[in-house]
Design a protein around this nucleic acid. Structure first.
Lengths: 98, 98
DNA sequence: TTGACAGGCAAGTCCCCACTTGCCTATAAC
DNA sequence: GTTATAGGCAAGTGGGGACTTGCCTGTCAA
């Protein structure tokens, strides 16, 4: 029906959006690091497995890329898939040039 | 938790995205007009009530504005709420200037 | 005024998805 | 080797949302 449903599904969840906020503020965090931050700063008592599943959805949507290193797995944000949204439905009066 | 969950909920559904596509192609359609187009061009056999509920969600998200005229109700798309998405998670290397 | 047309409202059903629970694998420190 | 740490896998559960069904309101033409 349409191009990438995974993208919209990914940003459709509030917890995943907060995860993207976290990775925007500090890129390349591990799973436990993200868990800790969500609990501390945002007060959401999500379990580790919940966050792990969220990250899997974000990765499938191409919004997060992972990099393994030893027993750590670092998560990097990639916002480029979001471009397809504003390309699909052009925003009237876009991009105030700097 | 975050600003406007209604926006993400609105674009989270595939049928609603097709409705936005329809209104992008031809703005100011009525409910029955949209129903007909979705059935013809996209082959989705959604009922009138279903589309009506979808339009309500889109309107609540600010993506669609309505204008009554007699017994008709015209639906107009407004993509400006989408701007908050790319502002929240800036896209690296944005806006290729024309 | 009667009928057709455009749309609204509300209750009910069904299914997807977020989250949990429990256990397992692998890397690193001791 | 043993223990702790970082993460993965799979089945089960519960709630929200998409969709239906049925009926009602308002507008226009005959």
């Amino acid at each position: 029906m349409d191009a990438d449903p995974d993208l919209f599904k990914a940003i459709g969840d509030a917890t995943r959006r907060v995860i993207l906020d976290e990775l925007t503020e500090k890129d390349g965090q591990t799973l436990f690091e993200i868990c800790g931050r969500l609990t501390m700063k945002h007060g959401l008592g999500s379990s580790r497995q919940a966050i792990s599943q969220h990250l899997a959805v974000l990765e499938q949507a191409g919004l997060v890329h992972t990099r393994r290193q030893g027993r750590y797995k670092f998560h990097h944000i990639d916002t480029s898939p979001l471009r397809s949204i504003v390309e699909r439905w052009p925003i009237h009066g876009e991009a105030p040039n700097p």
